[in-house]
Design a protein around this nucleic acid. Sequence first.
DNA 1: TACTTTATTTAACAACGTTAAATTTTATAA
DNA 2: TTATAAAATTTAACGTTGTTAAATAAAGTA
Lengths: 201, 201
Amino acid sequence: MGIKERRERERQITKQGILTASLEIARQSGWSAVTIRKVGESIEYSAPMVYQYFASKEEILLELLRIGFDELGQAMQEAIASTEDKTERILRAADAYWQFAQNNPERYQLMHGLGGVTLAPEAFAASIKQTCELAENILVDWAQAKGVTLEDPLGAAEIVWSLLHGLVSVSLAERVQGGKDRARNLVQRSIQDLLKAWSIP
Amino acid sequence: MGIKERRERERQITKQGILTASLEIARQSGWSAVTIRKVGESIEYSAPMVYQYFASKEEILLELLRIGFDELGQAMQEAIASTEDKTERILRAADAYWQFAQNNPERYQLMHGLGGVTLAPEAFAASIKQTCELAENILVDWAQAKGVTLEDPLGAAEIVWSLLHGLVSVSLAERVQGGKDRARNLVQRSIQDLLKAWSIP
DNA sequence: TACTTTATTTAACAACGTTAAATTTTATAA
DNA sequence: TTATAAAATTTAACGTTGTTAAATAAAGTA
């Protein structure tokens, strides 16, 4: 009597369909164009059917947000694991962050309340904190390896992350002249500059 | 026959009322709560009357955006004019930027597409560019005074501004631990750090 | 006072998120 | 296989949004 199980499998497929459809609409037309009716149409159901899978539109966005932060965290972890050099580690983690934002602009928007996303600030808080702690860890590692004493490690992490987030935000809004590659170099260079300043007593 | 003039005066007052009402609603309940009907109610008119003053809701937001960038630019200009010391000048300009964002969070959101604001990216571009050019100017001045050669002055300006914008964004979303004062110090310190790095060959 | 113009409001439309009711489809039991 | 219960799905509807058209009220002019 695997009928219940089959149903559950179908449910998961449809649920995933809702998520990918939402993401696709956002990719094509921005987050304000993501409507329940359009999502329903995408999965070839009537609009109210969406509510059999998510309690509200906000829940869809929150789920996508969670997935996004998971993937970003994973990408950064891989970057960190890819080298033993503490400085290079920071630069690669930053580049992983940068690449994620460039390859998934609409998800980055969702994860940071950009591009007309209406999500309560509390939604971001936890995941952001996690990313920031990760940044703090690799900075502390770096400082230790270099024999540098960071008087405010969390502050340093927040600075690096803010710089990164600022450049990404600006780049995503296509406000930086010279295209993505230039902005990418800017990220790398500015972080190196910060590390340089922190290396000197 | 000053009847036409009186009408025009009244018109300007009502127009201003629409702008301040929109800002007030956003301040109290966020930008997604700013609706034409509520704005109409605020100025004690029916909703459609708003369209006698602005062609669309977007036009209201764009006007507020323009005013916001004007005021921000003015505040930064005053900060710049307040000292001859090139380094202090940069720090004061950054603090003016910071103070504007803290004192007008909903306007800062509007000006940068935060907090559920749905405005086309093109809307920001011009004004942002202006602010960035201002940053470039004071950085070039600083470099000249310090005998430093900035190989990419615009890039340096974009870095400083991104750092500033990143910290402001994070602070406005109340994601920084330790409150506003700590974040303000972070801004000052990080910019000093960048300048320090750029001072060294 | 009568008429024209202007100012303002009410009604309405399409689209939104969401819920309730109606309907169709599917599974179960005789 | 057919009647019935359960589940799945859709249609209709509510209140809200931005916006426009039509109706009404007010003001100015002759």
